[in-house]
Amino acid sequence: MTNPILRSLSPLALLLASCGAPISAQGSDEAAQGMSITDVATFDEPWAMTFLPGTDLALITERKGKLKVWREGESRTVEVAGAPVVDYGGQGGLGDIVAAPDYATSGKVYLSWAEAGSGDARGAVVAVARLVLGGTPRLEGLEVIWRQFPKVTGRGHYSHRIAFSPDGKYLFVSSGERQKFTPAQDLTGNLGKVVRLLPDGTPAPGNPFADKGGVSAQIWSYGHRNLLGLVFSPDGRLWDLEHGPAGGDEINLVEPGKNYGWPLVSDGDHYDGKPIPRHKTRPDLAAPAISWNPVIAPGDMIFYTGKAFPQWQGQALIAGLGSGGIVRVAIEGDKAREVERIDLGNRIREIEQAPDGSLYVLEDGEGARLRHLSPKS
């Protein structure tokens, strides 16, 4: 029988009070790179994960529109009320989630999703809300502060990753070109761009195209395709992780005002076999730090800063959809070099560093496992 005291508690309190064990470890994987791998929870089409600062709680998004809170060491989750209505389908749905730099005092989180427009058009948005954990976990005061412009047809290449600068002053958002190619080179819209905003969503002062006004004032860099990773390295530089077409996945050092070439150049070709000029043919355009052909089909990336795997410090760890595991990359100046691939036997959508320096990865799709990776003791 359930403890009568626990019956009176909120869903989150039950989660915090529970002592449920993680799902059983997968012994067949334990030889992988000297790690212990434990499956701890399951989710339906998860997309993003973030730990709340100063806690052992993480927020996890599911593409159909659910936001869940999960406590490290537990198998059960609690749904957060007040999540937005999303345009689910194709690559669209609920996307990224990050805590505000001042989360400890404001309780605010930022999240992105695909939003329906008029007719058959849609586009990504970013919003901010206050996360309330007392009682029923919920989002309050959800407010959209940025939108992709223009909204277009189709359900691909939203990108909508969110990253705050290390000083917390600026909000960066990756905006995919929505499988429309040419908008990546059009400075009157924000498709195929990285944008730099203030935390309230307005264009940040000093952006390279501020003198053009309008949407152009948001733009930090352009010529991007589908950016599924956007993260600052420990030395404070901004990097992105992009899907190429048939070949040409890449990591870029993102710098203000630079044109990264899509669709003018790529290290891959069109899906119908039509060739695309290579990056080396256009030295006036920013070349990637590394590119892959065949592709790794990345999901997201982090820069590792923990102590659990000290040999990885400062390196990029990429969640691989196509590569089915983790791709480890060393950064060498403004270039990058693949070091290792860690086979996890399934498509990996998201990777996150835990407070203790261990790792969590989220598989892709329905019934996706949240897997905990730690050094073997």
Score class of each variant (00 low, 15 high):
residue 358 S to V: 01
residue 335 K to A: 10
residue 41 A to R: 05
residue 67 L to I: 12
residue 238 L to A: 05
residue 133 L to Q: 06
residue 298 P to Q: 05
residue 28 S to A: 09
residue 248 G to T: 09
residue 334 D to F: 04
residue 340 E to Y: 06
residue 151 K to D: 03
residue 36 S to W: 12
residue 238 L to F: 04
residue 257 G to D: 05
residue 41 A to G: 12
residue 308 A to E: 09
residue 247 G to T: 07
residue 230 L to N: 00
residue 301 M to S: 14
residue 124 A to C: 11
residue 240 D to I: 03
residue 152 V to W: 01
residue 208 P to W: 10
residue 358 S to K: 00
residue 75 S to C: 05
residue 353 Q to L: 07
residue 249 D to Q: 08
residue 120 D to W: 09
residue 369 R to I: 15
residue 32 A to Y: 07
residue 159 S to F: 01
residue 2 T to R: 13
residue 327 V to I: 12
residue 182 T to F: 12
residue 329 V to H: 10
residue 114 A to E: 07
residue 15 L to G: 13
residue 165 S to K: 06
residue 47 W to T: 08
residue 145 I to T: 01
residue 6 L to R: 14
residue 47 W to P: 02
residue 59 L to G: 03
residue 249 D to M: 10
residue 350 E to F: 00
residue 229 G to D: 07
residue 70 W to M: 04
residue 244 G to H: 01
residue 112 S to M: 00
residue 308 A to Q: 12
residue 180 K to Q: 10
residue 86 V to S: 03
residue 35 M to L: 13
residue 176 G to D: 04
residue 146 W to F: 11
residue 31 A to Q: 09
residue 205 P to L: 13
residue 131 L to R: 02
residue 317 L to D: 01
residue 177 E to Q: 06
residue 137 P to F: 03
residue 111 L to D: 07
residue 166 P to C: 08
residue 208 P to Q: 10
residue 207 N to V: 01
residue 263 P to F: 06
residue 57 L to M: 02
residue 7 R to I: 15
residue 134 G to R: 13
residue 358 S to W: 04
residue 282 R to L: 05
